[in-house]
């Protein structure tokens, strides 16, 4: 009798201890990290993540393939509290494998288009919301009221439509000219120049941005003393005035904090959602800035994360 009571009490204690320690101690390592590949941006992000989450994690490298088998096996082995996926292949492979385990993705562009939404799914998008870009660029270009953009309706039409509404919220008129081929970029720029735009905004549109068209845009905007706000930092190095880019390391840090809140602070995963990168890097081409003179706000130049040349 005594023995039976003792056994029951002992078992009850164990159950209570397990409950108190939470799901992370049920033989699990807490976090399963799945990365798309071993690339520098992903490694930088992972480093930022480890800066916050210092405990050991199980890591799976998909080597560029969205292979869900390896993820499923790892989830079975590790039984993690949360899966943190770095890169689109990792996120897509994990999405169908996690079941009830929360999925936190990092470094994924256009996550909604990849089906990365829903209950227990959230993460940090690579996309910089237009409003964040416009807000930052109004600090760079003085009296930015009319912003021109050349785009392909088929590729970035939806994005431009949303951006127009966002721009209007802060008093900027976004004037878009749609083109269907790179050859039309010259005429499109001419149209925008006739409308007296204050700056040209470059969006990641493959129809518009080609090596040849960039050289044309860079040359013509310089000739017309028009700030060129580029879609990537590589263009600033080659003469565009400014760009905003995400900080991969900081995105990892951001993910580490979210994961930490879920596991250590036992924050509900019901509210997981897609958020924007917390930190943006402003790059400025100093030569172009000097060429544009008064059009550029010197305070913004001084606060740039990176300058060229």
């Amino acid at each position: 009798m005594f023995g039976t009571t003792l056994n029951k009490s002992w078992l009850m204690s164990l159950w209570c201890m397990a409950f108190a320690l939470g799901p992370g101690t049920s033989g699990a390592e807490g976090i399963l990290v799945v990365k798309s590949q071993n690339s520098p941006p992903i490694n930088q992000s992972l480093e930022g993540f480890r800066g916050v989450w210092r405990e050991p994690v199980r890591e799976v490298d998909l080597r560029g393939k969205a292979d869900s088998k390896e993820v499923v096996n790892s989830i079975r082995d590790v039984r993690p509290d949360i899966v943190v996926a770095f890169g689109p292949q990792a996120a897509e492979a994990s999405r169908g494998s996690v079941g009830e385990v929360p999925l936190l993705f990092v470094m994924v562009a256009n996550p909604a288009k990849r089906g990365l939404e829903g209950r227990n799914i959230g993460g940090i998008s690579l996309n910089i919301p237009a409003i964040m870009q416009f807000t930052n660029y109004t600090n760079v270009v003085r009296n930015l009221k009319k912003l021109g953009v050349i785009f392909d309706e088929k590729k970035t039409g939806d994005m431009i439509k949303e951006a127009k509404a966002e721009a209007a919220r802060i008093g900027i008129e976004l004037i878009g000219v749609s083109v269907s081929s790179q050859r039309a970029v010259g005429d499109a720029l001419k149209t925008l120049l006739e409308q007296k735009i204050d700056a040209l905004w470059m969006v990641p549109d493959e129809t518009v941005v080609t090596p040849a068209s960039f050289q044309f845009l860079q040359r013509e905007t310089s000739r017309n003393k028009l700030p060129l706000l580029a879609a990537a930092e590589i263009f600033v190095e080659k003469g565009a005035l400014a760009s905003l880019s995400v900080d991969y390391g900081d995105m990892g840090r951001q993910a580490g904090e979210i994961a930490s809140q879920i596991i250590k602070d036992r924050k509900s995963t019901e509210g997981l959602k897609t958020v924007s990168p917390a930190k943006l890097n402003l790059a400025i081409n100093l030569e172009t800035s000097r060429h544009l003179g008064e059009l550029v706000n010197q305070d913004a130049v001084n606060s740039a994360s990176r300058t060229y040349p």
Partner: peptide
């Protein structure tokens, strides 16, 4: 080579 770049769909941006 000259300045060449390509759109990286994984990163959602242009890379050298």
């Amino acid at each position: 080579g000259a300045f060449n770049f390509a759109f990286d769909p994984d990163l959602g941006t242009f890379v050298s």
